[in-house]
Design a protein around this nucleic acid. Structure first.
Lengths: 114, 114
DNA sequence: GAAATATATACACAATAAGATATATACATG
DNA sequence: CATGTATATATCTTATTGTGTATATATTTC
């Protein structure tokens, strides 16, 4: 539960969300990101550190450049978090389905009242 | 793209993430949330407004109480956002799968180099 | 090994946001 | 309609965070 907070905090900044978007299709050097964003190099560097500490990106040196890319595991964690919520809607949908099919009709009608 | 930022910003605060968790299993009155969280009533109220403006929760008056609950649509939006990223990993996995099966072996080996 | 290129860090400043206290609004009940 | 209960808002204070400038570190090239 403490894990996701860092992920959400990392994604909660417009600049960082833009940086993430820049890496959508693959690795990007810091300089490429600086060009595309309207932020100074130092800022991009700091944002990348936050994204890195949140586990959202990884880095691979390439000569004097550093190539950043997204980490699938971070997205998996968000998925896992959301799955805990989806479950409840699915349960409700199941009950709705049963009601529509005429099964458990009494219980369904009873819940409608409360 | 501007939509998700609000969602992430709303979820980026520990108190709000806790409030969301409180509503995991269904509706909650403001007072119930105040009891469970260690924040003053005014703070909870303000957090609920932020969650509401982000589209994460909805409200339904019940006498003098107000019952808040999660909005499935918000989670759908996050899913949609993430789907755009998953697509790329799936493509890569497909290519990996092809390579492992020996199909398109030449192309796979070529990409390995670059 | 000096200059150039690429990236990270330190620091100061401004803007934002969270928290508490006090107050306002809305509904319910006698 | 006065009182109590439930929630929202206004205001102040404090802490956090993003941004830019300047500087440090690392790598390549001549």
């Amino acid at each position: 539960m403490n894990v996701q907070i860092r992920l959400f905090q990392a994604l909660a900044d417009p600049a960082r969300l833009g940086i993430v978007e820049t890496m959508k299709t693959g690795e990007r050097a810091v300089g490429d990101i600086v060009e595309r964003m309207n932020i100074h190099q130092s800022g991009v560097s700091r944002h990348l550190r936050i994204l890195s500490e949140a586990g959202l990106v990884q880095m691979r040196p390439d000569g004097q450049k550093r190539l950043y890319s997204l980490r699938k595991e971070a997205f998996d964690q968000i998925d896992t978090w959301m799955a805990g919520y989806r479950r409840h809607w699915e349960k409700r949908l199941d009950r709705l389905g049963e009601a529509l099919e005429g099964r458990h009709a009494l219980r369904a009608r009873h819940q409608e009242k409360s």
